[in-house]
Design a binder for these strands. Structure first.
Lengths: 163, 163
DNA sequence: GCTGATCCCATTGACGCCCATATAAGCCCA
DNA sequence: TGGGCTTATATGGGCGTCAATGGGATCAGC
């Protein structure tokens, strides 16, 4: 699973192209199947972007739902909305008009990590959402639990290569 | 899990680089995946820095939450703010402007242990926070519990080769 | 033939990599 | 135990490479 970190603002040129930040390209390069799939976020004014690999996995999870259930139908809608975006020789993608409009992106696109995938935002819009998220986290006293992994050789503190 | 001890003040050069203190580098060297991930502290004017290993574990725990839940979204914001900092051949990192600004770091960065990770402070700022922490500890009569773990050879802090 | 997309090339600036030096710390030996 | 030697750490600077960006040219579809 690719791990995305950070956020990067890149310019959309007059042809509608944007460079995918190099660190994100590096994370994508590790995937078995190369490619980016994007669709409109259904709850936010943003674009969701997954590696083709990850999208394939989500598709497989879909299969576990009942063929004609409402949930399956709804999720399938996401796939109908999804577009595969190709990287050009310089690592840029073409931002389709429909997606850009949904996110309100005009001249600058903010690539934002969502851990296992990433999003594209209009910078100002993201700043607001980011602030409110941080406030919620702070007031809720959010934590991310880290379970130590079992018996990890060499992980005993202080014993590694003294010099 | 890496154990960090002590605090070290190092200079930020005109290119925005700082040497990571050698003891911290040694602690990081024991990690499965090499690398440092840093982000703005929520509650303090400081930079939090984790090993990539530790960050990866946090990411995996996130995966157990529902893909589109609000909690996941909020926590993902942290990762969006995080940056992987590469060590150069001399063991230095580039301190991104955004992070340095949040911590008020200009020409000197104070590396401070936070046990399983570390922080970067502007020295003056840290001195103030340190004093008030110590006063609180004193007035509260705080203690630190040490639960001996079941027979884990070499895991007792402070027994390893002092130098 | 026109519109739009892909490919290719050029420019700029930032970042990574390499080398050099001084100080400080550790080590060895007398 | 003290002094000198060795080594690595911290720091500074130069240079090459790559990323981001812009523009022209070619190609395909309508």
């Amino acid at each position: 699973m690719a791990l995305f970190l950070g956020s990067y603002a890149n310019k959309v040129d007059r042809k509608g192209r944007v460079s995918v930040p190099a660190p994100f390209r590096a994370a994508l390069a590790g995937q078995a199947v190369h490619g980016i799939v994007a669709f409109r976020s259904f709850k936010e004014p943003a674009i969701e972007a997954f590696s083709l690999d990850h999208m394939t996995q989500m598709a497989q999870n879909l299969e576990e739902l009942d063929q004609f259930s409402e949930e399956r139908d709804d999720l399938a809608t996401l796939f109908a909305d999804a577009l595969q975006l190709a990287l050009d020789g310089e690592g840029r993608i073409m931002l389709p008009q429909a997606l850009a409009a949904h996110a309100g992106i005009t001249d600058t696109a903010l690539f934002v990590s969502a851990v296992n995938h990433f999003q594209l935002w209009e910078p100002e819009t993201y700043a607001k959402k980011s602030n409110s998220s941080r406030e919620r986290l702070l007031s809720r006293g959010a934590t991310v639990k880290v379970r130590p992994r079992a018996a990890q050789p060499g992980s005993v503190p202080g014993t590694e290569g003294e010099r």
